[in-house]
Design a protein around this nucleic acid. Sequence first.
DNA 1: CGTGGCATTGAAAACCGTCAAAATCCGTGG
DNA 2: CCACGGATTTTGACGGTTTTCAATGCCACG
Lengths: 253, 253
Amino acid sequence: MINRGCAVEHKTFFSITPATMRAACSQCNMRELCIAVGLEDQDLHKLDQIVARRKIKRGEHLYRAGDTFSSIYAVRTGFFKTDLIGDEGQEQVTGFQMAGEILGMDGISTDIHVCNATALEDSEVCIIPYENLETLSREVPSLQRQFHKFMSREIVRDQGLMVLLGSMKAEERIAAFLLNLSTRMKARGYSSSEFHLRMTREEIGSYLGLKLETVSRTLSKFDAEGLIGVQHKHIRILNSQGLHDLLDHGTSS
Amino acid sequence: MINRGCAVEHKTFFSITPATMRAACSQCNMRELCIAVGLEDQDLHKLDQIVARRKIKRGEHLYRAGDTFSSIYAVRTGFFKTDLIGDEGQEQVTGFQMAGEILGMDGISTDIHVCNATALEDSEVCIIPYENLETLSREVPSLQRQFHKFMSREIVRDQGLMVLLGSMKAEERIAAFLLNLSTRMKARGYSSSEFHLRMTREEIGSYLGLKLETVSRTLSKFDAEGLIGVQHKHIRILNSQGLHDLLDHGTSS
DNA sequence: CGTGGCATTGAAAACCGTCAAAATCCGTGG
DNA sequence: CCACGGATTTTGACGGTTTTCAATGCCACG
């Protein structure tokens, strides 16, 4: 639906074509954030042999709940969301992923993806076929270690979100969300104080366990208090410390 | 503090003593639920070589947030909780673990445990030293695969909890919790309709993002409606379908 | 038999969700 | 270039659910 222009064929997903090109982890500027972190040159080249790339346009799915699992994906450029659709059709966003972050590890458990992964802007991913990754990580211990660290990091991230959802009030959730985005932008060389939200208020709300009206209201309140500047999807962090203080405070009293 | 009686030394954790005995996965009746599932006999024996056991008394910690990570643990008997302590000291329970389930994978990410693991009854765990597991899983692909599946399962479990915390009302959360416990008891050969809760109302509430009073009230309401029977920590599931119906309903409308 | 932790129950208040309406933005087509 | 329509966002008023505060009861354990 969002497919105007750029009329070249981009349909072949699992062979090397303009759409899915041989990757070059050894050349990638995301390699220090990605699963390739800390690998020797010779091991990077082995990784190059199994990794391909694929472009995903905004609104397209990288995979859907129910799809057979075959690969994990590293975001190279762009922005994704993952979500689950509950029994009655309501969406629950489980994460937002940016460059260097890994998608698809939910599928290893049962060989079927349990969530959807959708591009929120035109994006590019590295495709890491899981069977090949298993094989390669048997001969490259540092790759094995990194892969395990990334799975563990996902577990820790999810538990952090459980704390947020289980014990924080709306203002604390929004503050935590903004600070988290800010930190991740900074780690990628972008401004930590000014960025565009790639997701809707509804998606933010779903992620944080709030309704979109509550998200909107809270952002407006922060704006009125001078903590942030809000213009639609453009956010400026004006008082980072003030947002931090909101977190520590709500839990005390 | 809950250490009266049983005055034998139980202090040596990483050598083979009465407290940490050589395990025998090949003999273990939990092996089909545990990480050893599907392994050939010869591979089971290799696993035996690296696994030890340890008894944990009720109230004792298996590990604490901040501890250096060295091993993951498989629950052999008993019942555990994992929790995080927030910046201001409030507890957030992140999970309850029973026989066959794996603890400690949060530590792989940074080599430091981020959560506490506490025995809620006298328990026994299998200690699986992580370095050895990495090494062995390089030569035993089916073990490698199982380990990855367990990490992925943990991710999927956490995401399910995120859905619960992000979109369910109190009654739905309690119903989901009881049904989840019931299912896991049944998988271990216990009654699915009658069991003892090993945790307090406060721990249940922390896990489900509710206050203990709400947990108590909701259990009383279910009791009054004939869905369950409640006597302190003893629970009988009287109308399993009725609990299921609560789940589907709340999400519609 | 008394103490302390845990659980239950009630009443009031806070917080967030729901419903509703208006405003703004963005892509499309005239 | 401007006008239009749909999606998104903002804002307000109200109501419901859960939390908070408080008091009582129950049970296990010493």
